[in-house]
Design a protein around this nucleic acid. Structure first.
Lengths: 190, 190
DNA sequence: CTCCAAAGTTACACATGTGTCACTTTATAT
DNA sequence: ATATAAAGTGACACATGTGTAACTTTGGAG
């Protein structure tokens, strides 16, 4: 027994994602969001006390999706296959890493935000454990060098998506060359 | 025939750098800068019309320093030596890349800013040419793989500084492992 | 049909940062 | 010693974003 909503949570999240990637944490405002969604700013306050609350809930949703997809990647049999699948997935939607960085900027302004940040913390540990296992798998299959810290390997893989493709090299070529360097380095084997 | 300045340009630049790295472009305000320097905000307007002007001049200074040091690196004889010197230099002051990214956000609000941005553009080309030569040198000495786009190689080298060292691995070890991956990859040679 | 609760809007008070101007302070050249 | 020009200050008007409260709109349950 109520009026129909002008905007779905899904629309809210998608616009939020775009805004975040376009303008960063500070550039993301309810004023802007409301304009893009063609509702009044006050309408958004019906659902979220403030932008921290909206953003932290959005982050939970985004990380959930990422973990879900990562588990699918982990179903591949060999480490090689998993490695390539992960690489391709990350490069397909290059946003996760930046989104996560932005997420860390959210100040804990109330109880709900605190809860969401705790959830995020747990999910991050879950994610890290999954990735850790992935690295261990690579080492146990004798593919990955055993003396490399996993945080370095993972950090490197995730950072690569931020490298600007200034020369507009075709996406598939870019990804392949990137993999090549990651796997075997930029130096010739002497 | 004038009063002594409370703050030197050098102090202004150093505080600016810290503020930028701490808070990012949007978080950098004259209000904050004036507080940190213990002067009134209005005093800063005696020297700069607005923050864009100050920041763009600071950027020019920073890029100049970087290019100067890069030329010193380029004096090393072999590509190997140049490579390691560059890597060490970049990791010694990890700020250049982030600073440059922030610099790109400066809107052209007046003539002076426009001029500074043009200067920055020219210096960037100069920088890119230097680095390009460096890469070409590496390829000609048959050290670097010839089929890798230089923008990818450079992007990768500069991005590596942004990888968070979560496990607090000692700096020297971190840098060495990073070099190892860059040069020969994370995979074992089968 | 009409009630009413959720959806949405408009308007206000508040907070923070900006750019400017009239003003005061101070070191030095004369 | 004093005039002066640069250095510095405090205060004001403006702009943008926030959070809230009083209001209107709307659609389905009874």
């Amino acid at each position: 027994m109520a009026r129909e909503r002008k905007i779905s949570t899904e629309e809210l999240y998608q616009t939020t994602k775009q805004l975040l990637l376009d303008r960063g944490y500070d550039g993301y405002t309810f004023t802007l969001l409301a304009n893009r969604l063609d509702v009044s700013r006050a309408a958004i306050y019906k659902y979220y006390e403030n932008k921290e609350e909206l953003l932290s809930e959005y982050m939970v949703y985004e990380l959930q999706t990422f973990i879900y997809n990562l588990k699918i990647v982990n179903q591949e049999k060999s480490f090689f296959d998993q490695f390539h699948a992960l690489f391709n997935y990350i490069f397909n939607d290059m946003s996760i890493y930046r989104i996560r960085e932005i997420g860390m900027q959210i100040p804990t302004v109330n109880q709900k935000v605190a809860e969401n940040k705790q959830k995020l913390e747990k999910m991050h540990i879950q994610l890290y454990t999954l990735l850790q296992k992935f690295i261990e798998f690579g080492k146990s299959e004798n593919v990955l060098k055993k003396d490399l810290p996993s945080s370095l390997v993972l950090g490197l893989i995730f950072q690569t998506v931020n490298i600007p493709n200034l020369e507009r090299i075709p996406h598939s070529e870019w990804v392949e060359k990137m993999k090549e360097i990651m796997c075997h380095g930029m130096f010739n084997k002497e």
